[in-house]
């Protein structure tokens, strides 16, 4: 049993859990940055910038997210190759779209045809992160935009009365105060992000879903020392439990964070904490 659980493939399975955690660790800040940028753009005084911000936030609404994942993976890949193609091969005269093929010059291929296996995997992972960040950036943008509008208007007026400029008021008054309003939305988003990680499988990354399918399938004695029947149901039960524990732990952690951020805020939560302390 111990030998079975430590075969090379099982070790890959375990390390794919790390892949998922790494994805979460990298995507969450990136998406937050995207969202912050989008929310700032949506509030911009310049109309075209505002339109870009608002349409980026709005465009995710109404379409299944999984469609975005499937779309962006190909679209981003082709966009990168097209840009490199324009930069690296200026004297290429054939059309890029030839019927059903997308043809760029060899130097523009991403990753390069002769690069190592790990470069291919790293590139696939990078595109996956960018896809997640784009989709969740729009979600986060929506949350942050709402939070910025919820900060009491009197606070901004006071800032103006003290002679702060627009950007000073934004960074010193609005941004520190908006988090407590954004936290419910953002913690919801974090849960959603956790639950979106199995979609990595669709993006072609060898993640836990991939390995669970591989390892669980029937094995005969020809290919392995440990033949077994179709155990995929057990592997997926394991994944189910993993996700349940993960979301539960996140819930507890986010609950603590909410309490911490409510301290000293002019909200009901902050008031309750003040009373409890006094």
């Amino acid at each position: 049993m111990a030998c079975f659980l430590t075969t090379g493939k099982h070790l890959s399975f375990y390390s794919s859990f790390a892949t998922v955690l790494l994805l979460l660790a990298l995507t969450a800040p990136t998406a937050l940055a995207f969202g912050f940028g989008a929310a700032m753009a949506a509030r911009a005084p310049l109309a075209p910038v505002r339109w870009i911000g608002k349409s980026y936030i709005a465009i995710v609404r109404g379409v299944p997210d999984i469609a975005f994942f499937l779309f962006f993976v190909i679209a981003l890949d082709q966009a990168f190759e097209w840009l490199r193609h324009k930069a690296l091969c200026p004297d290429w005269d054939q059309p890029i779209r030839q019927g059903n093929d997308f043809v760029v010059c060899d130097a523009a291929k991403l990753p390069l045809g002769n690069s190592a296996q790990w470069v291919h995997e790293a590139y696939g992972f990078f595109v996956a992160i960018l896809t997640f960040a784009l989709v969740f950036g729009a979600f986060a943008g929506n949350v942050l935009y709402g939070a910025m509008r919820t900060v009491p208007h009197a606070q901004m007026e006071t800032a103006e009365a003290y002679g702060m400029t627009r950007s000073q008021a934004f960074w010193r008054i609005l941004v520190p105060q908006m988090w407590v309003y954004a936290i419910p939305g953002l913690s919801n988003l974090w849960m959603v992000l956790i639950k979106a990680t199995p979609l990595l499988f669709l993006l072609g990354v060898e993640d836990i879903v991939y390995w669970a399918r591989e390892l669980g399938g029937s094995k005969t004695t020809r290919f392995t020392d440990y033949p077994h029947g179709d155990w995929r149901v057990w592997y997926f039960l394991g994944l189910l439990v993993f996700y349940l524990c993960f979301t539960r732990l996140s819930e507890i952690a986010l609950e603590r964070l909410t309490r911490r951020l409510s301290r000293g805020q002019a909200t009901l939560g902050g008031e309750a904490l003040r009373k409890a302390g006094a």
């Binding site: 879903v209 997926f236 189910l240 996700y243």
Partner: peptide, 14 residues
């Protein structure tokens, strides 16, 4: 608490 995607997989193999 668990992803629908995993629920589908689990149910199918179950």
């Amino acid at each position: 608490g668990s992803p629908l995607f995993i629920q589908f997989f689990f149910a199918y193999f179950l």
